[in-house]
Every structure is written in C-alpha cells, then in structure tokens.
C-alpha cells in the first residue's frame, strides 16, 4: 500500500493510493466539505456519483465528485460553497 498526501484548503492530509478524495476525507475524520446556497453542510451521500452532494474543487477545477475521483499524490483540493441567492 502506497501512502500519498493531498492538500485540503492548504492543510496536508495523508491517505492511501487508490482512495477516492471522499474516502480519504472520511478516513481523515471529515464528514462535510461543501455548503449549499443556503449554507447547509454537505459531504458524501450516495457514494456512487448520482447525488452530486460531495463536489470539491480539484487542482483549480470546480464541481468534481469527490466520491468518483481517485486522489492523486499532490492534489490540491479546495472546498466549495455554492453561489448564494
């Protein structure tokens, strides 16, 4: 098993190669990493790419489903807030 690190809002987090970004965040003890347009917290819900709750910004690209994207060593992940009304 190969250890990897990703940067989440500037903080270095350790994980395992092959983990999804969502799996890595959950294993790190986080359950929420996005806010909806009324400010409600969201993390993983469906886990299979259907619900789009778990969106993050990966290396500058918005709206990536964290449960579908495998974490790559050195990835920069930023947490997202939806546009407020």
């Amino acid at each position: 098993m190969t250890g990897i690190h990703i940067e989440v809002d500037g903080e270095r987090i350790a994980g395992l190669a092959g983990q999804s970004i969502a799996g890595l965040l959950l294993a790190d003890g986080r359950v929420a990493w996005r806010r909806t347009r009324t400010g409600r917290p969201r993390g993983v819900f469906c886990g299979i790419g259907a619900c789009f709750d778990c969106l993050v910004t990966v290396n500058g690209l918005r709206d990536v489903r964290a449960c579908q994207r495998r974490a790559v060593d050195g990835d920069k992940v930023d947490l997202q807030e939806d546009d407020r009304d």
């Binding site: 359950v31 929420a32 917290p41 969201r42 993390g43 993983v44 819900f45 469906c46 886990g47 299979i48 619900c51 449960c67």
Partner: peptide, 8 residues
C-alpha cells in the same frame, strides 16, 4: 452530514 445511502 453523517446520513448516507446504504449503498454509500
């Protein structure tokens, strides 16, 4: 957060 589908 913490409520998941069973499939998740």
């Amino acid at each position: 957060p913490g409520v998941f589908t069973a499939g998740a």
